[in-house]
């Protein structure tokens, strides 16, 4: 029998996994987003509004929130096409802070005081979503569209010149990522049954990025490893309690120095595929 304590941790892993996947999807096109907590916040508030105020069932509310956030992601994705690298990172950072600031002033849902009244969801429910989306990403990774994403990341000009519509591909990735982050937000709200704007700050976006970079930035499963690492490692290394962030910061730098692609990478998977077919 699992203790409630562990159940809480595993729920955190599932939610972080979804947030990390949302960063991973944008990273697949070669762009780093430092504002995905913003999409998560949109998802959290919208889902909570739908379930608490409108009485919509949670699953439907999550789907609606994902669609709405995805649409916002697409709308933001178009101007974002003009920006690259650091500039896009700064713009997404600004977007995240704008969303946080918006909810801080959104008195209809509590403003700085936060919003509550959500019904607690089970661990199984959270992981059904997390596993389904991880599986979806894993399937997409073997599809034509993912190859196109990688081509766009590597060389946009060459990609366009073999007929790839780079605009649609990048904007689509942004929208998909925004939808996934919104689901993370909706689940977060119904796990903690209380949300406030501070839950969706820059630090949250950074957690997503950390999970992806540590776990492996070239395969979706890396987000799972990263999320487990970020949540579980401090629990098992109690002496780390006060220093866990310093340790993660150090790990991040060390990882960039010795293994930039993160713990898992594509060649590792290729190796296993080779073994299987041999």
């Amino acid at each position: 029998m699992m203790s409630t304590y562990y159940a809480g941790l595993l729920a955190d892993v599932g939610i972080l996994l979804l947030g990390a996947l949302s960063v991973y999807i944008i990273l697949a096109t070669g762009q780093l987003s430092l504002g995905n907590a913003g999409f998560m916040g949109i998802g959290a508030y919208l889902t909570s509004y739908l379930t608490v105020t409108m009485g919509v069932p949670l699953t439907l509310a999550l789907v609606i929130a994902a669609a709405a956030s995805g649409a916002i992601g697409v709308i933001i994705g178009f101007p974002a096409l003009r920006l690259r690298g650091i500039y896009l990172a700064m713009a997404t950072l600004g977007f995240g802070e704008m969303v946080r600031s918006f909810f801080l002033n959104f008195d209809a849902m509590g403003g700085a005081g936060g919003f509550h009244g959500m019904r607690h969801v089970s661990l199984g429910y959270i992981w059904t979503w997390a596993a389904a989306i991880l599986l979806l990403v894993a399937i997409l990774e073997h599809s034509q569209i993912w190859l196109e994403l990688r081509a766009v990341r590597d060389d946009e000009t060459a990609a366009a010149l073999v007929g790839l519509d780079t605009t649609t591909i990048k904007v689509g990735a942004f929208g998909f990522a925004a939808a996934v982050a919104a689901i993370a937000g909706g689940l977060f709200a119904h796990h903690h049954v209380y949300i406030e704007p501070g839950n969706f700050s820059f630090e949250r976006s950074i957690d997503f990025v950390l999970a992806v970079i540590l776990g492996g930035s070239t395969v979706g499963a890396g987000a799972l490893v990263g999320a487990l690492l970020l949540v579980m490692l401090p629990e098992h290394l109690r002496f780390l309690a006060d220093w866990r962030f310093a340790v993660f910061g150090g790990l991040l730098i060390a990882m960039l120095l010795v293994r930039r692609q993160g713990i898992l990478d594509r060649s590792l998977f290729r190796f296993f595929e080779f073994r299987r077919s041999a």
Binding site: L32, G85, I86, A89, I206, V209, L210, I213, D242, W243, R244, F245, A246, F248, G249, G250, L251, L252, I253, L256, L257, R260
Partner: peptide, 20 residues
């Protein structure tokens, strides 16, 4: 390295320094 990489490593320092 690509410009995003040193940005990430300085992020690592940022996390460490705040914790310290």
């Amino acid at each position: 390295a690509p410009v995003v990489t040193p940005m990430l490593s300085t992020l690592g320092f940022s996390i460490i320094l705040q914790n310290v």
